[in-house]
Protein backbone atom coordinates (compact mmCIF):
# COMPACT_ATOMS: atom_id res chain seq x y z
CA UNK A 1 0.00 0.00 0.00
CA UNK A 2 2.86 2.33 0.76
CA UNK A 3 4.06 2.13 -2.82
CA UNK A 4 1.01 4.08 -4.04
CA UNK A 5 1.81 7.76 -4.47
CA UNK A 6 -0.68 9.77 -2.42
CA UNK A 7 -2.88 11.87 -4.67
CA UNK A 8 -3.66 15.44 -3.73
CA UNK A 9 -7.45 15.87 -3.62
CA UNK A 10 -7.13 19.08 -5.66
CA UNK A 11 -5.46 17.21 -8.51
CA UNK A 12 -8.21 14.64 -8.35
CA UNK A 13 -10.86 17.27 -9.01
CA UNK A 14 -9.00 18.70 -11.95
CA UNK A 15 -8.28 15.44 -13.71
CA UNK A 16 -11.67 13.77 -13.26
CA UNK A 17 -13.96 14.11 -16.28
CA UNK A 18 -17.21 15.78 -15.24
CA UNK A 19 -19.63 15.97 -18.14
CA UNK A 20 -21.60 18.96 -16.94
CA UNK A 21 -18.45 21.06 -16.86
CA UNK A 22 -18.22 20.70 -20.62
CA UNK A 23 -21.81 21.64 -21.40
CA UNK A 24 -20.73 25.24 -21.90
CA UNK A 25 -18.69 24.13 -24.92
CA UNK A 26 -21.72 22.28 -26.23
CA UNK A 27 -23.70 25.48 -25.73
CA UNK A 28 -21.22 27.47 -27.79
CA UNK A 29 -21.44 24.80 -30.44
CA UNK A 30 -25.24 25.07 -30.47
CA UNK A 31 -25.10 28.86 -30.70
CA UNK A 32 -22.60 28.62 -33.53
CA UNK A 33 -24.74 26.07 -35.39
CA UNK A 34 -27.84 28.25 -35.12
CA UNK A 35 -25.90 31.26 -36.33
CA UNK A 36 -24.39 29.23 -39.14
CA UNK A 37 -27.88 28.07 -40.15
CA UNK A 38 -29.06 31.68 -40.31
CA UNK A 39 -26.27 32.30 -42.81
CA UNK A 40 -26.79 29.04 -44.69
CA UNK A 41 -30.57 29.29 -45.19
CA UNK A 42 -30.48 32.47 -47.32
CA UNK A 43 -27.95 30.72 -49.57
CA UNK A 44 -30.29 27.74 -49.87
CA UNK A 45 -32.99 30.21 -50.85
CA UNK A 46 -30.72 31.77 -53.47
CA UNK A 47 -29.97 28.31 -54.83
CA UNK A 48 -33.72 27.65 -55.08
CA UNK A 49 -34.26 30.86 -57.02
CA UNK A 50 -31.49 29.92 -59.46
CA UNK A 51 -33.10 26.52 -59.90
CA UNK A 52 -36.53 28.08 -60.43
CA UNK A 53 -35.13 30.42 -63.06
CA UNK A 54 -33.57 27.39 -64.77
CA UNK A 55 -30.84 29.58 -66.17
CA UNK A 56 -27.42 28.39 -65.05
CA UNK A 57 -25.66 29.90 -68.08
CA UNK A 58 -27.06 33.32 -67.17
CA UNK A 59 -25.58 33.32 -63.67
CA UNK A 60 -22.59 35.49 -62.87
CA UNK A 61 -19.40 33.84 -61.63
CA UNK A 62 -20.25 34.56 -58.00
CA UNK A 63 -23.73 33.18 -58.45
CA UNK A 64 -22.31 30.07 -60.11
CA UNK A 65 -20.02 29.62 -57.11
CA UNK A 66 -23.04 29.81 -54.78
CA UNK A 67 -25.00 27.45 -57.02
CA UNK A 68 -22.23 24.85 -57.19
CA UNK A 69 -21.42 25.03 -53.49
CA UNK A 70 -25.00 24.68 -52.33
CA UNK A 71 -25.65 21.97 -54.89
CA UNK A 72 -22.73 19.92 -53.61
CA UNK A 73 -23.95 20.48 -50.04
CA UNK A 74 -27.56 19.49 -50.64
CA UNK A 75 -27.40 16.90 -53.41
CA UNK A 76 -26.54 14.02 -51.03
CA UNK A 77 -29.72 14.70 -49.09
CA UNK A 78 -32.35 15.59 -51.64
CA UNK A 79 -33.23 14.79 -55.22
CA UNK A 80 -35.77 17.61 -55.56
CA UNK A 81 -34.27 20.68 -53.85
CA UNK A 82 -36.90 23.01 -55.33
CA UNK A 83 -39.53 21.67 -52.94
CA UNK A 84 -37.50 19.87 -50.27
CA UNK A 85 -35.50 22.93 -49.26
CA UNK A 86 -38.79 24.59 -48.29
CA UNK A 87 -38.46 22.52 -45.11
CA UNK A 88 -35.69 24.88 -44.00
CA UNK A 89 -36.93 28.45 -43.97
CA UNK A 90 -37.08 31.50 -41.78
CA UNK A 91 -35.31 32.48 -38.59
CA UNK A 92 -35.61 31.81 -34.89
CA UNK A 93 -38.42 34.36 -34.80
CA UNK A 94 -40.57 32.09 -36.90
CA UNK A 95 -39.17 29.37 -39.07
CA UNK A 96 -39.41 25.89 -40.45
CA UNK A 97 -36.85 23.30 -39.39
CA UNK A 98 -37.05 19.83 -40.91
CA UNK A 99 -40.56 20.76 -41.99
CA UNK A 100 -41.67 21.58 -38.46
CA UNK A 101 -43.07 25.05 -37.96
CA UNK A 102 -41.53 26.77 -34.92
CA UNK A 103 -42.25 30.27 -33.64
CA UNK A 104 -41.03 32.42 -30.82
CA UNK A 105 -43.66 32.62 -28.05
CA UNK A 106 -43.26 36.39 -28.22
CA UNK A 107 -44.36 36.29 -31.86
CA UNK A 108 -47.54 34.48 -30.82
CA UNK A 109 -48.21 36.84 -27.93
CA UNK A 110 -47.70 40.06 -29.88
CA UNK A 111 -49.54 38.76 -32.93
CA UNK A 112 -52.48 37.93 -30.71
CA UNK A 113 -52.48 41.31 -29.04
CA UNK A 114 -52.16 43.08 -32.38
CA UNK A 115 -54.91 41.30 -34.29
CA UNK A 116 -57.07 39.75 -31.51
CA UNK A 117 -57.15 36.59 -33.62
CA UNK A 118 -54.81 33.68 -34.07
CA UNK A 119 -54.74 30.69 -36.35
CA UNK A 120 -54.42 27.29 -34.71
CA UNK A 121 -51.41 26.33 -36.78
CA UNK A 122 -49.57 29.47 -35.71
CA UNK A 123 -50.48 28.87 -32.09
CA UNK A 124 -49.24 25.30 -32.27
CA UNK A 125 -45.93 26.41 -33.74
CA UNK A 126 -44.97 27.82 -30.33
CA UNK A 127 -45.98 24.67 -28.46
CA UNK A 128 -42.56 23.02 -28.55
CA UNK A 129 -40.66 26.19 -27.51
CA UNK A 130 -43.11 26.89 -24.68
CA UNK A 131 -43.03 23.33 -23.34
CA UNK A 132 -39.24 23.28 -23.48
CA UNK A 133 -39.13 26.64 -21.68
CA UNK A 134 -41.42 25.36 -18.93
CA UNK A 135 -38.96 22.51 -18.35
CA UNK A 136 -35.57 23.98 -19.23
CA UNK A 137 -36.16 27.63 -18.42
CA UNK A 138 -34.72 30.41 -20.57
CA UNK A 139 -32.72 27.91 -22.59
CA UNK A 140 -33.52 29.88 -25.76
CA UNK A 141 -31.60 32.89 -24.41
CA UNK A 142 -28.49 30.92 -23.61
CA UNK A 143 -28.45 28.11 -26.11
CA UNK A 144 -30.29 29.19 -29.28
CA UNK A 145 -30.60 32.97 -29.61
CA UNK A 146 -28.42 34.19 -32.48
CA UNK A 147 -28.14 37.57 -30.79
CA UNK A 148 -26.66 35.92 -27.69
CA UNK A 149 -23.89 34.54 -29.87
CA UNK A 150 -22.92 38.06 -30.92
CA UNK A 151 -23.58 39.62 -27.51
CA UNK A 152 -21.38 37.11 -25.68
CA UNK A 153 -18.54 37.67 -28.13
CA UNK A 154 -19.16 41.38 -27.66
CA UNK A 155 -18.99 40.84 -23.91
CA UNK A 156 -15.67 39.01 -24.29
CA UNK A 157 -14.42 42.02 -26.20
CA UNK A 158 -15.57 44.13 -23.28
CA UNK A 159 -13.48 42.13 -20.80
CA UNK A 160 -10.44 43.10 -22.89
CA UNK A 161 -11.50 46.69 -23.45
CA UNK A 162 -12.72 47.69 -20.00
CA UNK A 163 -9.30 47.43 -18.29
CA UNK A 164 -7.90 49.64 -21.06
CA UNK A 165 -10.71 52.13 -20.48
CA UNK A 166 -9.93 52.02 -16.76
CA UNK A 167 -6.30 52.89 -17.44
CA UNK A 168 -7.22 56.07 -19.26
CA UNK A 169 -9.68 56.96 -16.53
CA UNK A 170 -12.91 56.02 -18.25
CA UNK A 171 -14.65 53.48 -16.03
CA UNK A 172 -17.51 52.75 -18.42
CA UNK A 173 -19.83 49.85 -19.03
CA UNK A 174 -20.48 49.08 -15.38
CA UNK A 175 -23.99 50.43 -14.88
CA UNK A 176 -26.57 48.14 -13.35
CA UNK A 177 -30.32 48.50 -13.51
CA UNK A 178 -33.17 46.48 -12.10
CA UNK A 179 -33.68 43.18 -13.93
CA UNK A 180 -37.40 43.86 -13.60
CA UNK A 181 -37.09 46.67 -16.12
CA UNK A 182 -37.61 44.16 -18.94
CA UNK A 183 -41.11 43.33 -17.70
CA UNK A 184 -41.97 46.99 -18.04
CA UNK A 185 -40.57 46.94 -21.57
CA UNK A 186 -42.67 43.86 -22.35
CA UNK A 187 -45.78 45.55 -20.96
CA UNK A 188 -45.14 48.71 -22.99
CA UNK A 189 -44.53 46.65 -26.13
CA UNK A 190 -47.83 44.83 -25.65
CA UNK A 191 -49.68 48.09 -25.10
CA UNK A 192 -48.14 49.53 -28.25
CA UNK A 193 -48.94 46.47 -30.36
CA UNK A 194 -52.50 46.52 -29.05
CA UNK A 195 -53.09 50.19 -29.73
CA UNK A 196 -51.19 50.41 -32.99
CA UNK A 197 -52.47 47.02 -34.13
CA UNK A 198 -49.21 45.92 -35.66
CA UNK A 199 -46.30 43.77 -34.51
CA UNK A 200 -43.71 46.53 -34.17
CA UNK A 201 -41.99 44.52 -31.45
CA UNK A 202 -40.25 42.37 -34.05
CA UNK A 203 -38.19 45.42 -35.00
CA UNK A 204 -36.65 45.75 -31.55
CA UNK A 205 -36.26 42.08 -30.68
CA UNK A 206 -32.61 41.21 -31.39
CA UNK A 207 -32.98 37.56 -32.52
CA UNK A 208 -35.71 38.59 -34.97
CA UNK A 209 -33.66 41.56 -36.13
CA UNK A 210 -30.43 39.65 -36.64
CA UNK A 211 -32.04 36.80 -38.56
CA UNK A 212 -33.74 39.29 -40.85
CA UNK A 213 -30.64 41.40 -41.36
CA UNK A 214 -28.46 38.41 -42.29
CA UNK A 215 -31.10 37.49 -44.87
CA UNK A 216 -31.16 41.04 -46.22
CA UNK A 217 -27.37 41.12 -46.45
CA UNK A 218 -27.09 37.85 -48.36
CA UNK A 219 -30.14 38.06 -50.60
CA UNK A 220 -30.80 41.78 -51.03
CA UNK A 221 -27.13 42.77 -50.92
CA UNK A 222 -27.17 45.11 -47.92
CA UNK A 223 -28.27 45.39 -44.32
CA UNK A 224 -31.58 47.07 -43.51
CA UNK A 225 -32.25 49.66 -40.83
CA UNK A 226 -32.45 46.94 -38.18
CA UNK A 227 -28.68 46.57 -38.33
CA UNK A 228 -28.32 50.07 -36.88
CA UNK A 229 -30.58 49.08 -34.02
CA UNK A 230 -28.52 45.96 -33.42
CA UNK A 231 -25.30 47.95 -33.48
CA UNK A 232 -26.82 50.31 -30.92
CA UNK A 233 -27.63 47.42 -28.60
CA UNK A 234 -24.06 46.15 -28.92
CA UNK A 235 -22.69 49.57 -28.02
CA UNK A 236 -25.13 49.73 -25.12
CA UNK A 237 -23.77 46.41 -23.84
CA UNK A 238 -20.18 47.47 -24.33
CA UNK A 239 -20.26 51.05 -23.09
CA UNK A 240 -23.17 51.33 -20.66
CA UNK A 241 -24.27 48.10 -19.04
CA UNK A 242 -22.67 44.68 -19.41
CA UNK A 243 -25.05 42.40 -21.36
CA UNK A 244 -27.51 45.21 -20.71
CA UNK A 245 -30.02 44.51 -23.44
CA UNK A 246 -30.58 40.87 -22.47
CA UNK A 247 -30.60 41.62 -18.77
CA UNK A 248 -32.74 44.73 -18.58
CA UNK A 249 -34.57 45.40 -21.85
CA UNK A 250 -35.25 42.34 -23.98
CA UNK A 251 -39.05 41.79 -24.13
CA UNK A 252 -38.58 38.20 -25.29
CA UNK A 253 -36.29 37.55 -22.36
CA UNK A 254 -39.00 38.94 -20.10
CA UNK A 255 -41.56 36.54 -21.53
CA UNK A 256 -39.17 33.60 -21.25
CA UNK A 257 -38.40 34.61 -17.66
CA UNK A 258 -42.08 34.60 -16.78
CA UNK A 259 -42.51 31.18 -18.42
CA UNK A 260 -39.51 29.77 -16.60
CA UNK A 261 -40.62 30.94 -13.14
CA UNK A 262 -41.35 27.33 -12.16
CA UNK A 263 -38.95 25.60 -14.52
CA UNK A 264 -37.97 22.06 -13.62
CA UNK A 265 -34.28 22.04 -14.51
CA UNK A 266 -32.21 24.30 -12.31
CA UNK A 267 -28.62 24.90 -11.32
CA UNK A 268 -27.94 24.31 -7.63
CA UNK A 269 -24.95 25.05 -5.44
CA UNK A 270 -23.59 22.20 -3.39
CA UNK A 271 -22.57 24.14 -0.30
CA UNK A 272 -20.21 21.44 0.97
CA UNK A 273 -18.00 21.76 -2.12
CA UNK A 274 -18.19 25.55 -2.53
CA UNK A 275 -15.12 27.59 -1.57
CA UNK A 276 -16.69 31.04 -2.04
CA UNK A 277 -14.29 31.99 -4.84
CA UNK A 278 -17.03 33.96 -6.67
CA UNK A 279 -15.83 32.92 -10.11
CA UNK A 280 -19.41 31.90 -10.93
CA UNK A 281 -20.68 35.40 -10.19
CA UNK A 282 -18.02 36.87 -12.47
CA UNK A 283 -18.87 34.75 -15.48
CA UNK A 284 -22.63 34.92 -15.07
CA UNK A 285 -23.86 36.72 -18.17
CA UNK A 286 -27.06 37.76 -16.44
CA UNK A 287 -25.39 39.21 -13.36
CA UNK A 288 -26.90 36.64 -11.02
CA UNK A 289 -25.38 35.45 -7.77
CA UNK A 290 -24.86 31.67 -7.95
CA UNK A 291 -22.41 31.82 -5.04
CA UNK A 292 -25.28 32.82 -2.75
CA UNK A 293 -27.85 30.47 -4.31
CA UNK A 294 -29.59 33.34 -6.06
CA UNK A 295 -30.69 32.17 -9.52
CA UNK A 296 -34.35 33.05 -9.85
CA UNK A 297 -36.31 33.17 -13.08
CA UNK A 298 -33.56 35.01 -14.93
CA UNK A 299 -31.14 32.06 -15.01
CA UNK A 300 -30.99 30.62 -18.51
CA UNK A 301 -29.21 27.40 -17.55
CA UNK A 302 -26.29 28.38 -19.76
CA UNK A 303 -23.92 26.40 -17.48
CA UNK A 304 -21.09 28.92 -17.74
CA UNK A 305 -20.89 28.98 -13.94
CA UNK A 306 -20.69 25.18 -13.81
CA UNK A 307 -17.86 25.21 -16.32
CA UNK A 308 -15.85 27.72 -14.34
CA UNK A 309 -16.38 26.31 -10.85
CA UNK A 310 -13.01 24.99 -9.63
CA UNK A 311 -14.51 22.67 -7.03
CA UNK A 312 -17.48 21.27 -8.98
CA UNK A 313 -19.85 22.76 -6.46
CA UNK A 314 -22.49 23.68 -9.04
CA UNK A 315 -24.75 20.96 -10.39
CA UNK A 316 -28.02 20.57 -12.21
CA UNK A 317 -31.05 19.57 -10.22
CA UNK A 318 -34.73 19.03 -10.88
CA UNK A 319 -36.93 21.16 -8.69
CA UNK A 320 -39.49 23.87 -9.23
CA UNK A 321 -37.86 26.28 -6.80
CA UNK A 322 -34.38 27.36 -5.83
CA UNK A 323 -32.95 26.44 -2.44
CA UNK A 324 -32.65 29.29 0.04
CA UNK A 325 -29.22 30.77 0.79
CA UNK A 326 -27.26 27.94 2.38
CA UNK A 327 -24.58 30.08 3.99
CA UNK A 328 -20.88 30.29 3.26
CA UNK A 329 -19.25 27.50 1.24
CA UNK A 330 -17.73 24.81 3.42
CA UNK A 331 -14.37 24.94 1.67
CA UNK A 332 -14.14 28.70 2.06
CA UNK A 333 -12.21 30.78 4.58
CA UNK A 334 -15.30 32.48 5.97
CA UNK A 335 -16.93 29.19 6.90
CA UNK A 336 -13.78 27.93 8.61
CA UNK A 337 -13.31 31.21 10.47
CA UNK A 338 -16.76 30.86 11.91
CA UNK A 339 -15.52 27.61 13.37
CA UNK A 340 -18.40 25.65 11.97
CA UNK A 341 -16.12 23.60 9.76
CA UNK A 342 -14.08 22.36 12.69
CA UNK A 343 -17.11 20.89 14.36
CA UNK A 344 -17.81 18.56 11.47
Amino acid sequence: MNSIIPINSKDLVETRFVLRRHLNKLRWLTLAIVFFLLILLPFLHLYQTYLAANAYPLLSNNEKLIFNTVESLTSPFTASPESDLNNFKGTTWSGTLFGIQLSDPLAILTSMTASFTISTSFLMSALIPVLLTLVLGRFFCGWICPATFIYELNDNLGTWLHPLFDKVGLPIGRLRFSQRLKYLVLAVCIIVTTTAGTVLISNIYPPAVIGREIYYLIVMGSFGVGSLFFLATMLFDLLIARRGFCRYICPGGALYSLLSRYRILRIKRDVTNCNDCAKCNTVCQFGLDPMQDSFGQDCNNCSACIATCPTDALTFTTSISDVKFQGAGHLGKKYNKQGIGNQL
Partner: peptide
Amino acid sequence: LDRCIRCGK
Protein backbone atom coordinates in the same frame (compact mmCIF):
# COMPACT_ATOMS: atom_id res chain seq x y z
CA LEU B 1 -50.51 44.69 -40.81
CA ASP B 2 -52.36 43.22 -37.83
CA ARG B 3 -51.26 39.72 -38.64
CA CYS B 4 -47.81 40.07 -40.21
CA ILE B 5 -45.04 39.30 -37.74
CA ARG B 6 -42.22 40.34 -40.11
CA CYS B 7 -40.60 36.92 -40.19
CA GLY B 8 -39.62 37.31 -43.83
CA LYS B 9 -40.55 33.78 -44.81
